[in-house]
């Protein structure tokens, strides 16, 4: 399991959301409040778009397997950046020697030439049994870009393959449809192999202009008797959001400012503040889509029945 932060809106102080709030993303790597037994110590990754930077259509990318709380380079950079769109991710893996902690396994994934980035919170149980059944549904030019050993990177390649142009700039609707199609394919392949253990697939995808996030699980609540991950997995994997004008420090703590039309949307595996009162929970089995508009952002939540 991992913790993810996804954002679309007005420039946001990166150092604030990564380090400074009392339940910031980096704090969630070593002190998550909504995970019973896991820590997220297997590395940090981020893609962030800043329209004032050189080549603004390309995001700033950062990945490191070091612990982000001790990463002075990240801390210093974060203090200088104010992106208008981002996904940041702290990776959690089970405490098992089979797990590979490496830079190539860090999220978000963004293949060379692709405009879509994706991070995953969750895991597909028994992925090794189903991995190669995905090959027919993944375009060869994408399959050859898979570098790591995670299920997540394969899911990313699968989603890109469902787009009309995997290297184009899809709108929020097309990205959402590609995500839903991918989940349908994964369900079919799981069924083919008789894989029916609860498998959360909270995905965050963005192009810098559109954002899609899922709160979803295959076979939620179904565990074999001998399952050792049971206690960790029991609650439906969490996802929260807050929406408004700008996310900033206020007299009574960090929160979104008021706005007639939403201009910023912040999505996180768990709220960035101990006080959760300005956050809403994303419903289970659902998807949030958001897109930038001249007035701000347009967003909606819809059921994900795949």
């Amino acid at each position: 399991m991992c913790r993810v932060l996804a954002y679309l809106g007005e420039p946001i102080a990166l150092g604030h959301v990564l380090y400074q709030t009392d339940s910031s993303l980096v704090r969630q790597s070593y002190s998550p409040r909504m995970m019973a037994t896991f820590l997220n110590l297997a590395g940090f990754g981020m893609v962030a778009w800043d329209p004032r930077s050189a080549q603004p259509e390309d995001p700033f990318t950062y990945r490191a397997t070091t612990l982000p709380t001790f990463d002075r380079n990240l801390r210093n950079l974060a203090g200088k950046l104010a992106p208008t769109c981002m996904i940041a991710h702290v990776r959690g893996v089970s405490h098992d020697a089979k797990e590979i902690v490496s830079e190539s396994n860090l999220h978000p994934f963004r293949f060379p030439g692709a405009r879509v980035a994706m991070a995953h919170n969750g895991h597909l149980r028994e992925f090794a049994r189903m991995r190669y059944d995905l090959v027919p549904y993944i375009r060869p030019e994408l399959a050859q870009r898979i570098e790591g050993t995670t299920d997540s990177e394969w899911v990313y390649a699968l989603v890109l393959s469902q787009l009309e142009d995997p290297f184009g700039l899809p709108e929020a609707r097309e990205l959402a449809d590609a995500t839903a199609s991918s989940l349908r394919l994964l369900r079919e392949i799981r069924a083919r192999h008789g894989i029916d253990t609860s498998s959360p697939v909270n995905l965050s995808l963005t192009t810098g202009e559109a954002l899609v996030a899922t709160r979803f699980s295959f076979d939620y609540g179904w565990y074999p008797d001998e399952d050792t991950l049971l206690e960790t997995d029991l609650p439906y994997v969490s996802l929260w959001y807050t929406v408004g004008g700008e996310y900033m420090e206020r007299a009574d703590g960090p929160a979104m400012t008021a706005s007639d039309d939403p201009r910023s949307l912040l999505i996180a595996s768990e709220p960035l503040t101990v006080d959760t009162s300005t956050w809403l929970e994303v419903p289970e089995y659902s998807m949030i889509t958001a897109a930038r508009t001249p007035e701000g952002i347009e967003f909606e939540t819809r059921d994900l029945d795949v």
Binding site: Y241, G244, M256, A258, T278, W279
Partner: peptide
């Protein structure tokens, strides 16, 4: 009362 995002 319930506090909501965006100062509501």
């Amino acid at each position: 009362s319930l506090r909501l995002p965006g100062d509501r």
